[in-house]
Design a protein around this nucleic acid. Structure first.
Length: 641
RNA sequence: GCCCAUAUAGCUCAGUCGGUAGAGCACAUCCUUGGUAAGGAUGAGGUCACCAGUUCAAAUCUGGUUAUGGGCUCCA
């Protein structure tokens, strides 16, 4: 006699059965009308299909459509439905893989003729047809050799390769819906009718197993949801985030542009450059306060230096080069070799360490054309870059100091969610194990001192040393790796950096590469999207615009504008012969934080009327009071509350 | 770099079957002096990304190049 505890929506039911019994029948025994709401079940911490046969006493959690776990199953089944439709429409297609991803799924196909956008519409329609047929989805378990034969006979060579890669001798599970069979661990929805809200989104090329040496497959991305409402709201969210795309905003707010003659390199316009300068100066002052020396080094250096540093061998494909008087040069892709040149200009005592050199150096990397993406991935960028020369014993305290500064800065930008990742020694590396032990330990201690959770990525460190990466989460839940601190055991010795130790011996310093914002270009891109173009007052390209109602007030408006500029604010006036509502609209769309409206009333009382870009009337005040308001905004930076 | 798509006025976009281009906004001039998200009139503005080819004729069809977009790979 089996005793089964069935949990449906947190309510327990008890079922007994003499024989093994399927999950579906267990539910039917409680209430037959519940069967059609069920998607799958969890038995012994394993997700299973409704057809799963229970043969011992267990607790069964039923997963209904409304449960969180159902979404992943629906997406996975949608991927199968996609493959089913593709096989029907294009029978010679070979299937590769079709996993679930954030918000949806994809499936990779090997096809002779790549899919066209019209194909996507056909496939979507066929999927809808197959869904409406409410086809039963069955799980089959067969032996490994049988499975290999089956897929071989079906011409599915990628599936054969996948089976051969599944370790162990376990049997192989397959799923069948009508004439379509796919290799899959499952579980799946019981019938295709459960798939009610999916949309094919885009086509892409993708390499088999993600390796660029392998075949290029055709990938179809789709999104799938529990119901049409969730699908619609997802599509709406996508539209909304497209609106804050920094490339669109950059054009609309006249911040920067790109053009064909300089791919991946930014032309900053006045308003964009104001933001850039503001951020740079903010960082510059903080670095100085924190014991960094700012330097500035050449843009171009002889190839021989890059050969000595090791960059030439590893990265010359991605370096811009030039020549003069029979010498080859390279445009710098990073600042560190230059900083070692500055360091090496004299002999250093251990007493001077740690020595911190910072630079807003313009770096060029000839990134592959396909990787360029607005401000987010460029060929010419400036980092808030610095290198710390120190002893091994100083690593931990330097990393801690760095993190203090980093969190202060992130908070000023209102990025309060930061993920920390420690990447440790890769297989190919320089330096002794003892040195790596010590370095990794220092980073770990510094992380633990913070008391924040962090993630370990073994083997992901650079060849020259371990590193910590700081990943920001923006308001659209996207992750951006910005900050980093990397320990380098290699370059100081390659480029002959040394210091005199307490005992008079010459030693090689450790170098820490570190950045907090990363590329300033990219960081501005992130900020634009985070704030949906409405940058906080301290960063806004125009903080205040003064608007006159009629030309009678033009003189007073200009006086107010000048007054604000003299006090260091970015103010403009708009004296155009337009109605006040027109000007308000224009500057609201330009996301100017404050609009000062000047009419005869204001002149008479020597005040200004203030409206925010959010459309709020902030009332009438005198200009000194407004200056105080601005000052407190600027001082608060991005911090809220 | 690889796969697919796209490229028309400063911007956003129409342009059917191949017959040398259109709208809205922006811009200029004039009228209007209006109190919190678009007042009106007139005007100027384009070698249809670039280079070839097919054709009596190409924005439109074909090939190539470049850039951009979505992915993949990469990211010192």
């Amino acid at each position: 006699m089996l005793v089964i505890t069935v949990i449906i929506s947190d309510v327990s039911h008890y079922i007994t059965s003499c024989d093994p019994i399927s999950v579906r029948n267990v539910i039917a025994a409680i209430d037959p009308s519940l069967v059609r709401l069920a998607i799958a079940a969890r038995v012994d911490d394993r997700l299973v299909d409704l057809s799963y046969i229970i043969d011992h006493d267990v607790k069964v959690y039923i997963i209904a459509e409304k449960d969180k776990e159902s979404l992943e199953i629906i997406r996975h089944s949608s991927a199968h439905l996609l493959a089913h439709a593709v096989k029907q429409l294009y029978p010679t297609t070979q299937l590769a893989i079709g996993p679930v991803i954030d918000n949806g799924f994809y499936y990779d196909f090997a096809v002779k003729n790549p899919f066209m956008p019209e194909d996507l519409r056909r496939i979507q329609m066929r999927m809808e047809e197959l869904a409406s047929q409410d086809i039963l989805i069955e799980r089959l378990v067969i032996q490994r050799d049988e499975a290999v034969d089956l897929f071989h006979n079906l011409g599915e060579e990628y599936k054969v390769r996948i089976i051969n890669d599944i370790s162990g001798n376990e049997n192989i599970s397959l799923y069948r819906q009508a004439d379509f069979i796919d290799l899959c661990r499952g579980p799946h929805v019981p019938t295709t009718g459960k798939l009610k809200a999916f949309r094919l989104m885009k086509l892409a090329g993708a390499y088999w197993r993600g390796d660029s040496r392998n075949d290029m497959l055709q990938r179809i991305y789709g999104t799938a949801w529990i119901d049409l409402r969730s699908l619609e709201s997802y599509l709406y969210r996508l539209e909304e985030s497209e609106k804050r795309d920094h490339r669109k905003v950059g054009k609309a707010l006249d911040l920067f542009h790109f053009q064909e003659e300089a791919p991946g390199m930014v032309f900053w316009h006045d308003h964009g450059w104001r933001v850039y300068i503001e951020i740079q100066n903010y960082i510059r002052h903080l670095l100085r306060e924190n014991g960094y020396q700012e330097v500035h080094t050449p843009q171009i250096m002889s190839r021989s230096l890059w050969e000595r540093s090791g960059h030439w061998e590893k990265f010359h494909k991605y370096m811009f080069t030039t020549a003069s008087e029979n010498r080859d040069y390279a445009v710098k892709p990073m600042n560190c070799p230059c900083h070692i040149q500055v360091y090496n200009q004299r002999l250093h005592s251990y007493r001077e360490l740690p020595l911190r050199l910072s630079e807003f150096g313009s770096c060029h990397r000839n990134e592959p054309s396909g990787t360029l993406h607005g401000l987010m991935r460029v060929r010419n960028f400036v980092q808030d870059d610095a290198h710390i020369f120190c002893t091994e014993d100083q690593i931990q305290s330097e990393v801690s100091r760095f993190m203090d500064l980093l969190f202060q800065i992130y908070n000023d930008f209102n990025f309060n969610e930061v993920q920390l990742v420690l990447s440790t020694r890769p297989e190919q590396r320089v330096g002794s194990n003892a040195v790596w032990d010590k370095a990794e330990k220092s980073l770990e201690l510094a992380l633990n001192q913070r008391g924040l959770p962090w993630q370990l990525k073994p083997g992901e460190g650079a060849f020259y040393g371990p590193k910590i990466e700081f990943v920001l989460r923006d308001c659209l839940e996207r992750l951006w790796q910005c900050g980093t601190i990397q320990i380098d055991f290699s370059m100081p010795s390659r480029l002959d950096a040394c210091y005199v130790a307490e005992d008079g011996s010459k030693r090689i310093p450790v170098m820490l590469h570190r950045a907090i914002l990363g590329s300033i270009e990219r960081f501005i891109g992130i900020l634009i999207e985070q704030y949906a173009a409405g940058l906080p007052v301290w960063l806004a390209p125009v903080q205040v615009v003064v608007l006159n109602i009629t030309e009678q007030q033009a003189g007073y408006a200009v006086k107010v504008e000048k007054f604000l500029i003299q006090r260091g604010f970015r103010a403009e006036s708009d004296l155009r012969n337009e109605k006040i509502s027109f000007k308000i609209r224009v500057h609201t769309l330009q996301r100017v934080p404050y609009m000062l409206i000047i009419g005869d009333r204001e002149i008479k009382t020597e005040t200004i009327a203030i409206r925010s870009r959010a459309g709020k009337d902030l009332g009438v005040m005198n200009i000194q009071a407004f200056v105080q308001l601005l000052q407190s905004d600027v001082a608060r930076r991005g911090r809220t509350g």
